[in-house]
């Protein structure tokens, strides 16, 4: 079983914080907007603190989940298939047979480029699992993974993978 690069936690934490900040900004901003204007005359005083509390609680939850996600994530190139284990709340174990791989992408978002990481995306024709992404790889590992997945997919050629 292969783990992700520990650095991926930085990416996830940054993403969690940005998302929490956007959500918190909207909620708290709306609460302040409602109390400052006369849209809702009888607005209770606890509205703004409650909104702040909700935003902070969700931010903490997001950060915790982002941190825990690293501990759960595992993948393995097995003989006939790619095996992936992930998910903090809903634990998902995916098995993708190499016969079914349509194509393999490697992609790097700006955040990933600054942290020196890459994501490999494996596409199948399936309707639910049509793209399986493995984040948090070093560029070298991403390249070798893409290469070996490609090789394995060609080796196990099927009819038309549909």
């Amino acid at each position: 079983m292969e783990r992700l690069t520990p650095r991926v936690r930085v990416v996830w934490l940054a993403l969690a914080l940005v998302r929490a900040a956007i959500f918190g900004g909207i909620v708290v901003g709306a609460a302040i907007g409602v109390t400052r204007t006369d849209l809702w005359a009888g607005a209770p005083d606890v509205l703004v603190p409650a909104a702040v509390a909700i935003a902070v609680a969700l931010a903490v939850l997001r950060v915790v989940v982002a941190w825990l996600r690293y501990g759960v994530w595992r993948f393995e190139l097995r003989d006939d298939d790619l095996y992936i284990e992930r998910g903090v709340f809903t634990r998902v174990r995916t098995v993708v047979p190499y016969v079914r791989v349509q194509h393999v992408d490697s992609r790097r978002s700006p955040l990933e480029r600054t942290t020196g990481l890459a994501t490999v995306v494996v596409y199948t024709a399936g309707s639910r699992s049509s793209d399986v992404a493995i984040p948090g790889l070093t560029p070298a590992r991403a390249e070798s993974l893409q290469e070996s997945l490609r090789g394995l997919a060609i080796e196990s050629e099927g009819e038309d993978a549909v």
């Binding site: 998910g87 809903t90 634990r91 098995v95 309707s127 699992s129």
Partner: peptide
């Protein structure tokens, strides 16, 4: 196409899981 084994936090409490056979 792929086989998914999923267990939500509530399913894990009872040692349950759902298995999906994904097709195209």
């Amino acid at each position: 196409q792929a086989v998914l084994h999923q267990a939500t936090i509530f399913q894990r409490r009872r040692n349950l899981a759902s298995v999906t056979a994904d097709t195209a």
